[in-house]
Amino acid sequence: MKAVRAFAPATVANVSCGFDILGFAIDAMGDEVEVRLKDETGLVVVSIEGDQGRLPYEVEKNTCAVAIQAMLDEMDRQVGMEIYLRKGLPLGSGMGSSAASAVAALVAANRLLGEPFEKKGLLPFAMAAEKVACGAGHADNVAPSLLGGFVLIRDYHPLDVIKLHVPEGLHCTLLHPHFELKTSDSRSVLRDNVSLKHSTIQSGNVAGLIAGLFQEDFELIGRSLRDVIAEPYRATLIPGFYETKEAVKGAGALGMGISGSGPTMFALSKGSETSPAIIRAAEQVYESIGLGVDAYHSAVNIRGAYVIEEK
């Protein structure tokens, strides 16, 4: 085996009330990375497709290379590898673009080396790449992209990641307005302190959402998709956010929130039947304000990242 190609799915992080601690994977789209062995030691990023020439080739800046190097450093191994990245996710979209690249690279490289790490053991290396990409090594994108399903990050010290139950029939519609929102800008508007009142409300909604997942109570899931910590500030950066939220709920969505740091929004629904109406409602809002919007419908991805091909 000289080469392995892997896929990692898009993700929704935060999931409204679960700021920095909840995320889930999406079936609709993701990134592919092929990793090939080479004779000379060291990593090299050979090609990047689908990024409009914006992503770095430097090993210390590219999330694929940073993640693989972190894994090799942990193993204390010197290996030569070529990296070929094919982006299926738009940059700065709030769909976990940098996380998907890092995760796909790790899954491919891990298989190429004989799988010295279990899937969950790859998380710290993916988080190292997220730190380079976003300035913080959060796991709410990389964990669901790697493991699939809904994931709770209970703690970081030590890392404690828990997979949650996903009710059958839970679907997601992603709505991506045609503009880019930098993660740094989304984080800059957040407040350093949270009131006791808002902390209590947020805790209740996180608990309600998790209970709703396990009890397969879709109405409870919908009631719990309320964020009083990040959304009130980040929504001001997304034109048409509140109008879209009202419109998609009127079209049958359980609830709507910001995917990651935005500008993509996610709407959860029971089954796929309401998705066309949700998409039409969002398109009408954005047509009225002169912006385009891309829409993707998907079930929750249970599988996570996986190997596509070995050569």
Rank of each mutant, 00 (worst) to 15 (best):
K2A: 13
K2T: 11
A10I: 08
V12L: 10
V15R: 05
V15F: 07
L22D: 10
A25D: 02
E32N: 06
V33K: 01
V33T: 06
E34M: 15
R36F: 01
R36Y: 02
E40A: 15
T41Q: 12
L43C: 12
V45T: 02
I48T: 02
D51A: 01
Q52V: 13
L55Y: 08
Y57D: 03
E60L: 00
K61S: 15
A65L: 03
A65W: 00
A67V: 03
A70S: 12
D76I: 04
D76A: 11
R77M: 15
R77D: 14
I83E: 00
L85P: 07
R86C: 00
K87L: 05
K87G: 01
L91C: 04
S93T: 06
G94M: 04
G96P: 01
S98A: 13
V103I: 11
A105Y: 00
V107L: 05
A108R: 06
R111T: 07
R111I: 06
R111F: 09
L112A: 08
L112F: 07
F117G: 03
F117R: 05
K120A: 06
G121A: 03
L122Q: 01
A129K: 04
K131A: 04
C134A: 15
G135R: 10
G137S: 15
G137F: 12
H138Y: 10
A139F: 09
P144Y: 15
P144F: 15
S145G: 02
G149C: 10
F150Q: 06
V151F: 11
V151P: 03
L152G: 02
I153D: 00
D155E: 12
H157V: 08
K163W: 00
V166E: 04
P167K: 05
H171N: 11
C172V: 15
L174H: 03
H176P: 02
F179P: 10
E180K: 14
L181P: 01
S184A: 14
D185L: 05
S186W: 12
R187V: 00
L190N: 12
D192A: 09
S195C: 09
L196W: 09
K197S: 13
K197T: 13
H198P: 05
H198K: 11
Q202C: 13
Q202L: 13
S203G: 09
S203M: 12
G204F: 10
G208W: 05
L220E: 03
I221C: 04
R223P: 01
L225K: 04
R234D: 01
A235Y: 03
T236I: 14
Y242M: 15
E243I: 07
K245A: 06
G250P: 12
A251V: 11
G257V: 11
S259P: 08
M265L: 14
F266S: 07
A267P: 13
L268P: 01
K270A: 11
G271Q: 09
S272F: 06
E273R: 12
P276E: 02
I278P: 00
I278R: 00
I279T: 03
E283W: 10
V285I: 14
Y286G: 05
E287S: 14
E287P: 07
I289H: 13
L291D: 13
L291P: 12
H297F: 09
A299Y: 14
N301I: 03
N301S: 07
R303K: 15
G304V: 06
Y306Q: 09
I308S: 07
I308W: 02
E309D: 14
K311L: 15
